[in-house]
């Protein structure tokens, strides 16, 4: 039960940080808040038993992502032009939220062992990782072996993104 309260408190804090981040006009503060957002998200992932994901979020979201955003801010203006409150987008967001909230009521209760998601392929992965692959970390065995194609695709996406950034910003021009 205490785990539930920690979880509820962390996700509430996360919502608060996100709300502040989009309200501020000084982009340095916004970027730093988004770094804090990632760090709290990583903590929340630990509470939710996703240690591998927490690890990645802490290293990527709070580390590299913030550094890239700061590097961008060193090249572009660091203040946002003040805007009026936009009614149409706010209305759209509220309407979508209402629809999603209605849909969420039908989801299985949080943490339910008998939820459909836990009875599909997950038991096979947990058992297979012990017998077929014999490594304790199930996330690694699913990532690299059962879903190897998926991970190959993701690696190629990362590769492609790097090539794209190098082409856009690399500054390679043809010699005249």
């Amino acid at each position: 039960m205490s785990g539930f309260f920690v979880n509820a408190a962390l996700i509430s804090l996360l919502t608060l940080i996100a709300f502040l981040a989009i309200r501020l006009h000084r982009l340095f503060a916004v970027v730093m808040l988004s770094g804090a957002f990632s760090l709290v998200a990583a903590t929340l992932f630990v509470v939710l038993d996703a240690v591998d994901v927490a690890f990645t979020e802490a290293a990527v979201g709070a580390g590299i992502s913030t550094i890239l955003a700061l590097a961008t801010l060193s090249l572009v203006p660091a203040n946002e032009k003040p805007h009026d409150f936009a009614f149409v987008p706010a209305f759209l967001a509220f309407a979508t939220a209402a629809m999603l909230a209605v849909a969420v009521a039908d989801l299985p209760v949080f943490g339910d062992v008998n939820a459909p998601i836990h009875n599909h392929v997950a038991p096979d992965y947990l058992q297979g990782s012990a017998e077929d692959i014999a490594i304790p970390n199930v996330v690694t065995s699913v990532l690299a072996s059962y879903r190897g194609f998926d991970t190959l695709g993701e690696t190629v996406v990362v590769f492609t993104a790097a090539i794209a950034v190098l082409l856009v910003l690399g500054g390679w021009t043809r010699r005249k």
């Binding site: 590299i64 890239l68 014999a134 490594i135 690694t140 690299a144 991970t151 790097a162 690399g170």
Partner: peptide
Amino acid sequence: QHIGILLVEFGVGLTVASVMVALFFT
């Protein structure tokens, strides 16, 4: 499976590390 996972993970690590360094340097 052990050998395969080790090789594949090393490939992923190599690409991700050098991509992140490339992004920062660029």
